[in-house]
Design a protein around this nucleic acid. Sequence first.
DNA 1: AGAAAACATGATCGTTGATTCATGTTTCAC
DNA 2: GTGAAACATGAATCAACGATCATGTTTTCT
Lengths: 197, 197
Amino acid sequence: MAIATKPRTKRGEQRRAEILAAAEQVFGTKGYSDASVAEITTVARTAQGTLYIYFSGKDEIFTELVREMGRMTRAKVGRAVAGASGRLDAERRGLAAFLRIAAERPALYRIVEEARFVAPEAYRSYFEDFARAYRLHLDEAVAEGGIRPGDNEVRAWALMGMAKTLGERFILWGRETDIDRIVDHAIDMIDHGLRAK
Amino acid sequence: MAIATKPRTKRGEQRRAEILAAAEQVFGTKGYSDASVAEITTVARTAQGTLYIYFSGKDEIFTELVREMGRMTRAKVGRAVAGASGRLDAERRGLAAFLRIAAERPALYRIVEEARFVAPEAYRSYFEDFARAYRLHLDEAVAEGGIRPGDNEVRAWALMGMAKTLGERFILWGRETDIDRIVDHAIDMIDHGLRAK
DNA sequence: AGAAAACATGATCGTTGATTCATGTTTCAC
DNA sequence: GTGAAACATGAATCAACGATCATGTTTTCT
């Protein structure tokens, strides 16, 4: 696999973006191994060889999509959480933002999950980066008395796991349109726990 | 792909089991597509053709492993939860049992997750069967006043998601040996929620 | 013991699909 | 406007691997 170069012209940028968009669609619907380079380039309306100008191979283009999802998720969730009134409000906004991403880019969502097997490095850093930030926010909230003390590393991963699985079940499979309904119920549990008063 | 038959002799039973065990190991370490039938049969110390006496193909043996994980998880978690003093104790025992399975059979754990892409039907029924039972137990607990009312479908999936992700992070990646520590912290959140009193 | 069914073998077949590259076209700096 | 660099093409290559099957061995049943 030869090394690929960054595009140096406007046309190049565009081609690369077209190929990425096509790859998102094809990987997202067929999965990594059923997706062929031939199909990706057909959808992108380019020749097969063109893909290798911008990417070193099938796996690199896949990994790049995982990175894109990482950037997007950090940006959107970060923005959503920015104006929150406290940690529990931030949890609500963050979860809602995440589920909205799943609804808008289901292909990208699946790609990240499949990355666990196709691009384990990229998968791990996606979640570890997210967890690191998550944990820090929880630590701050504990310090400020907004939430009860506890193990925030465990909490961060538990909360990410909830979000992932709710997305899979209600957005990807269930095509739930009322995201707020899911968020309300999940947040109620995160907020108060299950124990009867 | 020809249809495969159930073994009719003791030797047959044993061979099939040997092949399944080899497949668990190979699929679990290399993943579905990097695992070759040749390697599975080498590990099982049989000829390649032998695999096709018991399984119709590479995908069927993989699916069978997902079913095995389903049976084992239902059995072990069911047994663990049986003597619980209430729903919250059942949550604790169930989560602990699940994480112990992840520690004992990490290959099987990975296989189930990869099934999402390799054998989606098997993957869905694994989790939907589990969710159905989970939800019923939560419904009962609400009826008996053991836990607060709420949407138990959302709760069941949220709780399964927590368990899955904690297993991945702390058992598969972190090789955490103190399972009870993880369980304690997670259950504390499930029990009381995050909100400061 | 003998026959039939079940099981085991592994070399071969056939398909698939990622990657390459020689040739042609477009862009852009000067 | 011109030349060099960048970009585009798609047919050909090549390795990998799942599945098969004709032949041989073992088990079971009476």
